[in-house]
Amino acid sequence: MEKNEIRSKLVVIGGSAGSLPFLFEVLPRIYSPIQFSILIVLHRMAGTDSNLEALLRSKCSIPIIEVEDKLPLQDGYIYLAPADYHLLIEEGRSFALDDDEKIHFSRPCIDVTFQSVAQAYGSRATGILLSGANEDGTLGMASIRKYGGLAIVQNPASAQMPVMPQSAIDLGHYDRILGIEQIVSFLNEQV
């Protein structure tokens, strides 16, 4: 058990305005089952898109779970951060929710989750920052790199709203800039 935990990898994907089309395009093309887990943190309006989980589930063969308090992380799943809570990784690799003030006008805040993932997963964390209209995620990407993980930004040219990936690029907090096809390939090469 302990050994498995240490070997587990997590890909955390953060996005805001304009990132849903990316997810609908990319997630169905990831080969199932996956040997790692994926965590998706989106700026969502509380109550307005509660069927996002069902919508993603209808298009993906990988099981999708919306996170509840203290849910343990397991390989093979796509986890979706719930609306209206910040999402953190607790010791022993379970999820912890937090309803503290919004950051960047957002709850969940991408920076908060990326920083927590960075600390919990170190070099086994990959962050992918997608389309969005504000600068949330940039500090999180810096954290992922600081702890030895890999920071990928969606090519701003392919993003509906380039502000979010461009912000990480402008401050140098990234390792790779990838287009949609390259991100699909990257995810399918993870073992």
């Binding site: 953190l88 990784i89 607790e90 010791e91 912890a96």
Partner: peptide, 9 residues
């Protein structure tokens, strides 16, 4: 208490 939240605060 949950450690992740406390560390943040």
């Amino acid at each position: 208490y949950s450690k992740a939240s406390l560390i943040r605060r």
